[in-house]
């Protein structure tokens, strides 16, 4: 009985193709989140925070009664939001937190009201949650498996093409460059 020979070249190409298709979504999630996390100091990827500052005229604020003070602030600022909590940050700064996530600061010293609107960036938040492993332990196992698949894609890529375009001839310069560039950053 003839033993059927495995065509390793063909098998490698098929696996590289299908695993590549499977990894498309994950690569995009990790890449987009990676860019966002890299630039955290310049840009907040999780929330859009907008501030509106309004000067206020001197008036008799009910500083000894928080509930009355909140009512005054809501009327003055023409805000119709449900209040979650309030807090005196200092003798001249009173904060009101709203149920929609926004907040308002009464600054008595500078005579101004600062309204802070917080809008979550849901897509980036979800990507970052996955990238930073803020989810269940099962996701860590899954992302470890994904890392193994990426290693497979990298190595199997070396055996995808035969002939003059293979990475074993002149094209090896691309492979060497990809290894050398990170090495330069480490040793510089």
């Amino acid at each position: 009985m003839n033993k059927r020979k495995i065509n390793w070249y063909k098998l490698n190409r098929s696996l590289h193709r299908d695993i590549g298709y499977f990894c498309i979504g994950l690569v995009i999630i990790f890449a987009v989140s990676g860019i966002a996390v890299n630039h955290k100091d310049d840009w907040n990827p999780n929330y859009r925070v907008e501030q509106a500052i309004a000067p206020i005229s001197t008036q008799n604020w009910s500083l000894d009664n928080d509930e009355k003070l909140i009512s005054q602030l809501l009327v003055t600022s023409q805000i119709d939001e449900k209040v979650k909590a309030s807090y005196w940050a200092s003798p001249t700064q009173f904060k009101v937190f709203f149920k929609n996530g926004d907040n308002l600061l009464l600054n008595l010293k500078d005579q101004q009201i600062i309204y802070e609107k917080i809008t979550p960036r849901h897509v980036f938040q979800a990507f970052n949650r996955l990238h930073l492993n803020e989810t269940k332990a099962s996701w860590i196992i899954f992302s470890d498996a994904f890392a193994a698949l990426l290693i497979f894609l990298a190595l199997s890529g070396l055996f995808m093409i035969k002939g003059k375009h293979s990475p074993w001839g002149m094209r090896s310069l691309w492979v060497i460059s990809g290894i050398a560039l990170p090495a330069v950053y480490i040793f510089l």
Partner: peptide, 11 residues
């Protein structure tokens, strides 16, 4: 990354 507290927790 140990815990990520949401900004919407304010209040």
């Amino acid at each position: 990354g140990d815990m990520v507290f949401p900004m919407t927790a304010k209040g």
